[in-house]
Design a binder for these strands. Structure first.
Lengths: 348, 348
DNA sequence: ATAACTCGAGTGATCGTTAACATCACTCGG
DNA sequence: CCGAGTGATGTTAACGATCACTCGAGTTAT
């Protein structure tokens, strides 16, 4: 087995180039105060040794912070995944490195566990706080290092504007919009298949999508049916939605996300109800597959990527006050009407 | 704004506890040679200051390597995402931290760019080498630090057994199995909508799924139609598959992954062809949504999570030869028959 | 002609942690 | 009663990089 010979350090380069280690550092970091001839010598030595600076040592030495850690429980959902992409892009363009730590939803992490995820105290952190483990992590970080953390989640416009460490989108408004659309179509009322709230059990924590939906119904003077709680998976949603699709009086269902909507579509099909003839289904998030189901899902688009970008900018501001505080903003939700929604069948 | 007061270091704890910093280090690392009374004092001090060890400094000081970096281009695909989950879990259980660096497929990274992703020379790295940026990264790492890298990708059993830094699944065999299934159903031949190969353009690099498919057809003495190249996105697949669904002589399509299969299903529906009556469609990967489409997709299950776990184990072995070399293994593909496949309609 | 300034490069401290070695107080056997 | 062993600590030196200084030589200003 080949001897894993130690990697070259800045001193090795310095020795080979016949200069001091500091000069090498200057070359590497692009300092202007180094003669061209010296620079070339150093560059040659770097190439010959295959030297690459050690990021760990760099940030230890008090160089500028250059990494973010993202804490998330479920990156298989489209929302978090897209937000992550936004963070990645924004960070990458500034040469920050991005570390992702996945919180296990099954596992009950102790507070110390969560903190141990961070490579160092004060590590800049972005938390995907859309579910229970995320909310938990948010609280822990808020207690230990509030200056270097930002959370992404669904909130109302007021909450977003008020909190200096929060970024997100106005889920309530998006839900209201979708609900209004269904009512305008002529549906008597709209049922709701709800994603779990941040506290894990439905009804406990905040549920902005459900709130926007119920508020709209109330304002329109309609009956507000009990929301149906579902888990995050297809299987859970499929099971939870059964009573809804079996009930012929239900003509419209607003689903908490597109996964639930797909499961609802499937359940409706198996129950022999035609969509959108007998039943209108509206999803949430505009997950890529929604445009290609049959029938294609009507859904609400959310620009998660820009939310991720926003989170990174806010974090930079909070770490280093000199960066301008990006003004709180949230992308406008946009209803995308496809084929699973339509007017209810006239009563016979 | 609250002064971001510096985090407590091992020295601060030592001072407060009235011991040397080394004793604190011993307590933190669970060394046995510390008196119980001293340990308690130190523990108290740690609690009071909210001290947490700095991972960066720890590994700088030559402590055991404890992090992996995963290089991947597209984590939105189910395969890489699941493999990543496998790596995460395996790493987490050993208290390693996982860093994920997303390679931008659009961006053309220079070799130096790729290397700069790693926090230090010799950083243990796992590469998702299923697409062009991944293959590129694999080559770069193989040149610079072959001892500390492992690649995940689709390969034949022979390739996997031969290469000491490769982990993956036998895509060719899986494709062969699916193709054989369709032939046994009575289809004259099977068409193939192919994912991009590792070199980006179809036909250039290796395409194990396509190879397994064509080999099976040849062995059965059937005509081998030209495979139809597609991109990774739904939109590209939808466009690419048009000629296939428009051709009534096509009765079976094996798709390179489930995304392509969903797009094909949609295209077939819009072209007025019934599935599986007129056309059988088989996907690849058993992405979660496939069980909930209408009709539900027949597909080939691959245990990506165990591949990810295997990659991590192999990496550990390669870094530290004392760990037993996990014997090369790859999960058996499993055909999952749902509703998009059936015998061809008898000729009229 | 001499003080003042500029430019290029070197020296030493520092970051937080662990490894290796040194020290010191006991206990135990002869 | 003394040397060896042992268990609990302290001391010093890395690790790889940056930063704040310092210093000498050449240029410019007075």
């Amino acid at each position: 087995m080949a001897q894993p010979k130690k990697a070259a350090s800045i001193w090795d380069v310095a020795r080979l180039a016949g200069v001091s280690h500091q000069t090498v550092s200057r070359v590497v970091n692009g300092s202007p105060r180094v003669a061209a001839a010296t620079r070339d010598k150093v560059l040659d030595a770097i190439a010959e040794l295959g030297y690459r600076p050690n990021r760990l040592a760099r940030s230890l030495a008090g160089g500028a912070v250059e990494s973010v850690t993202v804490l998330a429980a479920d990156t298989s959902l489209y929302g978090p995944e897209a937000a992550l992409r936004g963070i990645e892009k924004a960070a990458r363009s500034l040469d920050w490195s991005v570390q992702i730590s996945v919180l296990d939803p099954a596992d009950t992490h102790s507070d110390a566990d969560i903190i141990a995820r961070l490579p160092r105290a004060g590590e800049p952190t972005i938390i995907m706080a859309h579910d229970e483990p995320g909310m938990r992590a948010k609280q822990v970080l808020l207690d230990t290092q509030p200056q270097a953390m930002v959370a992404i989640g669904p909130y109302t416009a007021e909450e977003l504007a008020a909190s200096p460490w929060l970024v997100g989108m106005d889920d309530g408004k998006a839900a209201a919009e979708a609900t209004k659309y269904l009512l305008d179509l002529g549906h008597e009322t709209v049922h709701h298949l709800a994603i779990p709230t941040s506290t894990g059990t439905f009804g406990g924590g905040k549920a902005h999508r459900a709130e926007g939906w119920s508020r709209t119904l109330r304002e329109a003077g309609r009956e507000v049916p009990d929301p149906v709680p579902s888990g995050w998976t297809f299987a859970e949603a499929f099971k939870a939605v059964q009573p809804l699709v079996a009930d012929p009086s239900v003509t419209a269902i607003l689903c908490g996300n597109d996964h639930l909507a797909l499961a609802t579509l499937r359940a409706a099909h198996l129950a022999g109800r035609s969509v959108p003839g007998d039943l209108s289904i509206v999803g949430f998030d505009n997950t890529p597959f929604t445009a290609y189901t049959t029938p294609a899902l009507t859904t609400v688009n959310q620009d998660f990527e820009s939310v991720g970008r926003g989170a990174f900018e806010l974090l930079r501001h909070r770490i280093d006050g000199s960066n301008p505080r990006p003004k709180p903003s949230w992308p406008e939700p946009e209803l995308i009407v496809r084929e699973t929604s339509g007017p209810p069948r006239p009563r016979s």
